[in-house]
Each structure stands twice: as structure tokens, then as C-alpha cells.
Design a binder for these strands. Structure first.
Lengths: 104, 104
DNA sequence: CAGCATCCAGAACGATACTG
DNA sequence: CAGTATCGTTCTGGATGCTG
């Protein structure tokens, strides 16, 4: 009982907050970039190689998006997660576990 | 240390799983519809009224999407979450809590 | 009430080629 | 290496009006 109530309370007033997360994660490749950077800093070309099929144009766009939202930062030629970006990892884990339970 | 390693292991092999979740949550209004249905079954016009600014066309599209993915089902004139849809709530809560911590 | 049909504007993405 | 420039397509969603 309490847990269901809790969930409602958690979500109820914060639809804008869900939208905030979606602004970060809602575009193609974003989650993959975060997953990659979660393992450690990477340079542009490293990301380009580890994320199959992404084009430099889109990678560049996504990196600019994420940087402008302070999810990642460019440090000495490498991109790395900020703490704000790192805090998104639990959400990614949660999504992955759902996707794992219900493969499509 | 262990927790970081754990996270990497959780995410590493399942990029397709994150994509699965994004196919559900990645469209506009989807999260709001799930949040609403999480409180209980609702009819078309109830959703239409509780979700401000959504047009019937888009609501209809989203409902069809979600139903075809077995996230919701139509039961006696009302839409309700399936267990698959209900299992998405923790992700929504996680996203909301992130968005709450970092308001945009 | 519960949608569906049309039309349209803009965003998002992909392919390819090019530059400092 | 680290991107940027151009071009074209597809995808999305908003506006509006109609139907059983």
C-alpha cells in the first residue's frame, strides 16, 4: 500500500521533471553516449568508433546538446560525465533492467 | 567501487534494452499517459481532460502505440496499465527524481 | 463520447564531402 | 584527429474538422 502511494506522490507533482530527463535522454544516441562515458572519459573519435553507425554530424550535435545541459564536459580533449550526468546512470540502469525483462 | 562496477555490468550488454524502453517512453506525452493510468484506469476523454494541451489525434496515436506494445490495455471502455506497463513506473520515478534534483 | 481523416510545418536524422 | 557544411528524407506532432 505504502509503496504505491509513495510512487504516486513521487510522480504526481513533477511531470516537468520527467520532461527534463526526457530532454536529455529522449534523442537518439544520447543514452549510448552516456553509457560509454560512464566507463570513463573518451575522445571524439573513440566515441565515434565505439558507437556503431553514428555519424560525426550527429555525434557532434549530441555532444553539444549534452554539454550545453551540463551532462558532460570537455576536459583536456576528452568528454566526461559531470555529476549531473552521472546521476542519470541509475535511470539508465532501471531502463535497461526493464528492457531486459521485456525484450522486444 | 563495487557499485560502480555493478552499474557497468548492468548496462554494458544491454544497449538494446535501453532502446526498448526508449521506444515506449521516447515519444511526447507517453510518460504523462503512463503516470495518469498509474493512478487507475481512465477513459479516453478523462485522459484528454487530465492531460492539458494534448489533441485527440495525438492521444489516440499514443494509445495505439502503447497498446500495441502491451504497455496498456483497453478494458471495458477504460485504459489501464498492464504489468509490463506498471513495471515502467520505477523508471519514471527515477527520472522524476533526477529532474527534481536538477530543475531546468 | 471515442475516436479517425487531412493537411502541414518543423524537427530530427542520415549520407556525403570537406576543412583547420 | 575533430569536427563543420550541405542536402535530402523521414518522422512527429499540431490544427481543424468529421463520423458512428
Amino acid at each position: 500500500m505504502a509503496s504505491i502511494t509513495q510512487k504516486i506522490i513521487d510522480i504526481e507533482p513533477v511531470e516537468g521533471c520527467i520532461a527534463s530527463a526526457m530532454r536529455v535522454l529522449g534523442r537518439k544516441w544520447s543514452a549510448l553516449i552516456l553509457r560509454d562515458l560512464h566507463r570513463g572519459p573518451k575522445r571524439f573519435c573513440e566515441l565515434e568508433h565505439s558507437i556503431e553507425h553514428i555519424t560525426p554530424r550527429v555525434l557532434s550535435q549530441r555532444l553539444i546538446d549534452l554539454e550545453s545541459q551540463n551532462i558532460i564536459k570537455l576536459e583536456a580533449g576528452s568528454y566526461e560525465l559531470t555529476s549531473k550526468g552521472y546521476d542519470l546512470i541509475p535511470t539508465l540502469v532501471q531502463m535497461a533492467s526493464w528492457g531486459n525483462k521485456y525484450p522486444s
